[in-house]
């Protein structure tokens, strides 16, 4: 098993990609700390893992709050005595045009759309990375941080907030890779394309057809396929990779 004896902290683990990653990591023998706002769904994921013989602790909390983040990293130490891997997966979107003028009416993306997306996707990733690095550095045995960017980082109509947050994650990833290489902590990020989760479930059929036409592999990713990329970057196989962005997008970003 690829993660035998390792402990991984996964944020946004109650649904979608985070859930798939948690289940996959459990199969590879990792002890898990799962964070999410949705305690009920989180509990079900943990239950599924325990049923399969795995080990999982859950922490209900908000990645934008330092005290909640601290509880999550502490849980790794109190439950398992160590922390080896952070999967910074928690993310949200609130889509809308930055500015819309129609029939003399002006609509703008408000603070209520901008602030929470930046807070969860970018600041949340930063806070969790900080909290994870401390015990990794203190322990002196290295570690892995895997952040989540998106093809949205390349720009997408209606996602000024989301694109800015996900491009920010790339800058964060590269900087932390430089700062923490001396501790043998690698920092990379996965950039999923359109993935079949509830975030894409609401896309109207017409838009979806247009989207599929742009993907060379002609289909959405499944959450399990993103989980495989997380596993790869967290595993020994990626020991010499740091500061990189791994697109898992069926080729949609090629040539963009």
């Amino acid at each position: 098993m690829k993660l035998e004896g390792k402990v991984a902290w996964i944020t946004g683990a109650a649904n979608g990609i985070g859930r798939a990653t948690a289940l996959r990591f459990a199969q590879e023998g990792a002890g898990l700390v799962l964070g999410d706002l949705e305690e009920g769904a989180l509990d079900e994921v943990a239950g599924e893992i325990r049923q399969g013989g795995g080990r999982a602790a859950i922490v209900a909390g908000d990645v934008t709050r330092r005290e909640d983040v601290h509880r999550m990293s502490e849980a790794a130490l109190s439950e398992f005595g160590r922390l080896d891997i952070l999967i910074n997966n928690a993310g949200i979107n609130r889509d809308g045009l930055a500015v819309k003028v129609k029939d003399g009416q002006v609509q703008q993306m408000g603070d209520d759309m901008w602030d929470p997306v930046l807070a969860v996707n970018l600041k949340g990733a930063f806070l969790c990375a900080q909290a994870a690095a401390v015990p990794m550095i203190q322990r002196g045995e290295g570690g892995r941080v895997v952040n989540t960017s998106s093809i949205g980082a390349l720009g997408n109509i209606g996602q000024a907030n989301y694109a800015a947050s996900k491009a920010g994650v790339i800058g964060l990833t590269k900087t932390l890779a430089l700062e923490w290489a001396r501790y043998n902590i690698t920092v990379n990020c996965v950039a999923p394309g359109a993935t079949a989760t509830r975030m894409t479930a609401g896309i109207p059929e017409k838009l979806m057809e247009g989207l599929l036409a742009k993907i060379p592999l002609r289909r959405l990713a499944r959450p399990e396929e993103i989980a495989e990329a997380h596993l790869f970057l967290a595993s020994e196989a990626a020991a010499y990779i740091t500061g990189q962005v791994l697109f898992v997008d069926g080729g949609i970003s090629v040539g963009v």
């Binding site: 890779a177 495989e228 196989a237 990626a238 990779i241 500061g243 970003s253 090629v254 040539g255």
Partner: peptide, 23 residues
């Protein structure tokens, strides 16, 4: 990894294996 089923939604990519030599 790239040859395995785990990477089947990855295509058209360049994966740097360089210890951060060029970012």
């Amino acid at each position: 990894f790239l040859c395995s089923a785990a990477a089947r939604h990855i295509t058209g990519q360049v994966i740097q294996v360089d210890g951060g030599q060029y970012m």
